[in-house]
Simulated assay, not measured.
Amino acid sequence: MQKIGHEYIFSTELTKSTDINEFIIEFYCENESEESPVKVTRNFDELLDFFEELDLN
């Protein structure tokens, strides 16, 4: 994973998933011109892990 610091932009998406615990959040670098996200989380556990990684950097 690319180090993104604490400046990022995120977007959310709705899906047709029947799993109530699934959601998608895409994180983008605020100052990067890349269109692809630096991180995609699909559930609450992945989101928490990502926030913990940010906190350690």
Rank of each mutant, 00 (worst) to 15 (best):
T12W: 09
E35W: 01
S33Q: 09
F44S: 07
N57Q: 14
L48M: 14
F51G: 08
V38Y: 00
F44I: 11
F51H: 13
I25S: 02
F50S: 00
E46W: 04
L54Y: 04
T15E: 13
D55I: 08
E52Y: 10
Y28S: 05
K39I: 00
G5K: 07
Y28H: 14
E46Q: 15
E22V: 02
Q2R: 14
E35G: 03
C29N: 09
F27I: 01
E52V: 05
E32L: 04
E34H: 07
I24D: 00
Y8P: 00
E32Q: 04
I9S: 01
E53I: 10
K3C: 05
F23V: 06
C29L: 11
I4T: 03
E53Q: 04
T18M: 12
L56G: 05
T41M: 08
E26G: 06
S17I: 06
D45K: 14
Q2H: 07
I4F: 09
C29H: 02
L47R: 06
E13T: 10
L54W: 05
V38P: 00
D19L: 05
Q2E: 10
T18W: 15
F23W: 13
D19W: 13
F50R: 01
S36F: 02
S36L: 09
E26V: 01
T41F: 00
E34K: 13
D55A: 11
N31C: 06
N21P: 04
D19C: 12
L54H: 04
S17F: 02
E7P: 00
E53N: 12
S36G: 02
M1N: 05
E46T: 09
N21Q: 11
L47K: 03
L56R: 15
K3L: 09
E35T: 04
N43S: 07
E53R: 12
F10Q: 13
E53H: 11
N21G: 05
S11I: 04
F44K: 12
K16H: 07
K3H: 10
T12S: 13
E26P: 03
D55C: 09
I20S: 13
R42Q: 06
L54V: 02
Y8H: 02
E7Y: 10
L48N: 13
D45W: 11
E26I: 03
T41W: 06
D19M: 12
V38S: 00
F27V: 00
E35K: 12
L47Y: 03
F23R: 05
T15P: 03
N57L: 12
K3D: 09
C29I: 01
H6E: 03
T15W: 15
D49W: 00
D19E: 12
L54I: 08
N31E: 08
I25T: 01
F10R: 15
M1C: 03
L14H: 13
F44M: 09
E34M: 04
D19N: 15
N57F: 01
Q2V: 01
I20A: 08
E30V: 06
V40E: 07
T12C: 08
I25N: 02
D55N: 05
D45F: 13
D55V: 00
F51V: 11
N31L: 07
